[in-house]
Design a protein around this nucleic acid. Structure first.
Lengths: 208, 208
DNA sequence: AAATAGATTAACTAAAAAGTTAAATAATCT
DNA sequence: AGATTATTTAACTTTTTAGTTAATCTATTT
């Protein structure tokens, strides 16, 4: 194999392994040896190519949040109605979370620890994501389609649901039998059906 | 001081210190020495009175989730309308979270790691909490007040908002200037104003 | 007040995990 | 093909942290 290919391949594998381990165990819980093992490489490679554990973690966080904001924004056509835009935004969030299985775990842990590792850059991504529902709601209010609503609350309700739905899955599965009827039914459904319902509820909530 | 008092006081201080450290750092990130330091006691006291790190953690988790379910349930008068009941339920959740500042951090981390430390007992508490909105919604549908809605989705949207609102606070504060106008306004407001809005949105969403 | 039992600690050990180094292997260049 | 440069590893050191122990201090009992 070519040298550059080898190097890039190694870096890719380290970052991927690191992401999975950090998502499962958190920063302190993650073992550098375990990351190396999953990457199929010697531990020294991590220090040689990336740096120490903290640098590696920062790298992983950055690569995870870096491209999310733009991805969601891109999907919304300018000429759509506010309702359509809001639907696309909700769907975009759901798709992003589906595409990045490690996102909820890492994000929830990051927030739990006060977001100390969230860089300037990532903060900008967050602000950029928040501006999407903010703009849609403003447009909707101006066109008389929506009532005045705080976009952050809406955003947090939607994202909150998605994160909780995903991360409670193991617990819901484990204690299946004792769950109320409604929960059991939802348990069998996919997240996309849940998202449909969220979409419906949100639109009912804010329609003028 | 009396011997029994001394013992109880030590245990109390250990548990309190442990909760704060576990909330801030997570299980693996928490240092037993740090817990002892915050408790103002020697580390050996922890092993003498409680047990090893995992026993201590389990104890903390249990004491945290143990009495929450019943606390919320207790507040809802049987003769209230479904709308009133739903409001009380949302308020009850908000109050609980306000009363237990370490709850969001610990819960989010627990979920992020697959809830491996959530005991049978705590799972029962969760199921019991979920049954509250489930019953209210059913009653509301039967009385023609609400449309048919999945209670888990509703619950997760509400709880999701509250947890995110609390845990994103440091990040929101830190990057204050770059936030969109709406977010900045909300930032200055208290959580209770956020809860009001959530209440309003939820009721609009499900009203028949 | 002397003896006893329980609370508390300082100092220790053992284990685990992060991080380093020098040597080996593989690709690239002349 | 041989010299050179980059990748990769096995084996090591250092640091951190959980957990223990034996001694000390303090309240209680006789």
């Amino acid at each position: 194999m070519e040298l550059r290919e080898k190097r890039d391949e190694s870096v890719r594998r380290i970052l991927e392994a690191a992401m999975s381990v950090f998502a499962e165990e958190g920063y302190s819980g993650a073992r550098v040896d375990e990351i190396a093992k999953r990457a199929g490489l010697n531990k020294a490679m991590i220090y040689y190519r990336i740096g120490d554990k903290l640098v590696l973690y920062t790298e992983v966080i950055h690569s995870l949040f870096g491209d999310i904001g733009s991805a969601i924004k891109g999907n919304i056509p300018a000429d759509a109605t506010p309702e359509e835009k809001l639907k696309i935004y909700i769907r975009g969030l759901a798709l992003t979370i589906a595409d990045h299985p490690y996102l909820p775990g890492i994000m929830m842990r990051e927030l739990a620890s006060g977001g100390g590792n969230i860089s300037e850059l990532v903060a900008e991504d967050f602000a950029s994501i928040l501006s999407i529902p903010a703009n849609i709601l403003t447009e909707g209010v101006n066109k008389g389609a929506f009532i005045k609503t705080n976009p952050v609350i809406l955003h947090m309700m939607v994202v909150g649901f998605m994160m909780f739905f995903r991360t409670t899955e193991p617990v819901r599965k484990r204690y299946f039998e004792r769950l109320p009827e409604d929960v059991r039914i939802l348990n069998e459904k996919s997240i996309s059906e849940g998202v449909n319902e969220v979409e419906r509820l949100v639109l009912r909530a804010i329609k003028a």
